[in-house]
Amino acid sequence: MMPQLLSVNVKRPASRPIRIWVPVLPVLLVLSPVLLLAAVAATVACVVHQISVLRALGTGWRIMSALPGTRLDLKRGHTAVLVNIS
């Protein structure tokens, strides 16, 4: 399943915590023209380096769909960063 939501929480001493929620699908739709260009560039790169385009696309999709559940939690002193993909 494709990631639905990326959330980033940043806590720093003496400042307000930052919380960002990024809905992945709408952002991808907004960035679709750029993504299309990136896909064309990636296809050209695959052809130049003699890599199967279909295989590369399949692997990219597998990685994308395996991302949900990834969590990164860093704390140092009073500073904390939490990145969660769901």
């Binding site: 990685i63 949900p68 559940g69 990834t70 990164l72 939690d73 704390k75 140092r76 002193g77």
Partner: peptide, 17 residues
């Protein structure tokens, strides 16, 4: 300074990687 790192990676992501 206490530092704590907690990373959770789906095994499926490793398999795809």
């Amino acid at each position: 300074t206490p530092t704590r790192v907690n990373v959770r990676v789906p095994l499926q992501l490793l398999r795809a990687g």
